[in-house]
């Protein structure tokens, strides 16, 4: 046996990978009969981007149907309670006597702040929301130049349309819309005439 044959085998593996990392190298290896060596595995960000999977979740956003004041959120505060790192802060819109204000037949939040630096993208707020008002966005390029101020997203920054939701997550949006349509039909048929 050759002294050092294990070492030589290792060298062969590295050299094959080296050659395979060039396009002409892949062709050369195919000629010799070595197939299936993956070549370059790097994606040169930010010129080349990898499209994330549909379910990729990063930061929540509030959904509105049509116009930004027609948001689905009713300020029930369930997501604030269930959030594990406690990063949501909600205040319901109330008039001077302290009674909740209604718009489009629903209450609405006056303040809805989520802290980007605390949120851990766990999706529990989405799971527990009874009104499908909060969904997960997949935009992750949320850099800021200061440490605290611009990393707390307020209601205006969080509002995004339902069409946007359907665009980034088609299957999930279809499911949610079907559920909401069934619920609307049910309340319509249940309404006393």
């Amino acid at each position: 046996m050759i002294p050092g044959q294990g070492l030589l085998k290792g060298l062969a593996v590295t050299l094959t990978n080296f050659v395979a990392s060039y396009p002409w190298g892949q062709r050369l290896l195919k000629l010799i009969g070595i197939n299936g060596i993956s070549g370059m595995f790097t994606v040169e960000y930010p010129e080349q981007q990898v499209k994330p999977a549909e379910r990729f979740r990063y930061f929540p956003f509030l959904v509105y149907d049509g116009t930004p004041d027609n948001l689905r959120c009713v300020a029930c505060k369930i997501c604030e309670q269930e959030c594990p790192p406690q990063c949501i802060y909600i205040e319901m819109e109330k008039d001077e006597q302290g009674r909740p204000v209604k718009q489009h037949g629903r209450t609405l939040p006056k303040r809805f702040d989520i802290d980007v630096s605390v949120c851990m993208s766990c999706r529990i707020c989405v799971d527990v929301c009874p009104f499908d008002a909060i969904e997960m966005d997949n935009d992750f390029e949320l850099g800021a130049y200061d440490r605290f101020q611009s990393l707390v997203f307020e209601k205006d920054k969080l509002l995004k349309s339902a069409e946007y939701f359907a665009q980034i997550k088609p299957t999930e949006a279809a499911e949610v819309n079907a559920r909401l349509a069934a619920k609307a039909k049910k309340t319509a048929t249940d309404k006393p005439v």
């Binding site: 294990g6 070492l7 590295t14």
Partner: peptide, 8 residues
């Protein structure tokens, strides 16, 4: 191949 028989 890279590792198991590597003498080192």
């Amino acid at each position: 191949k890279l590792l198991t028989e590597n003498e080192i």
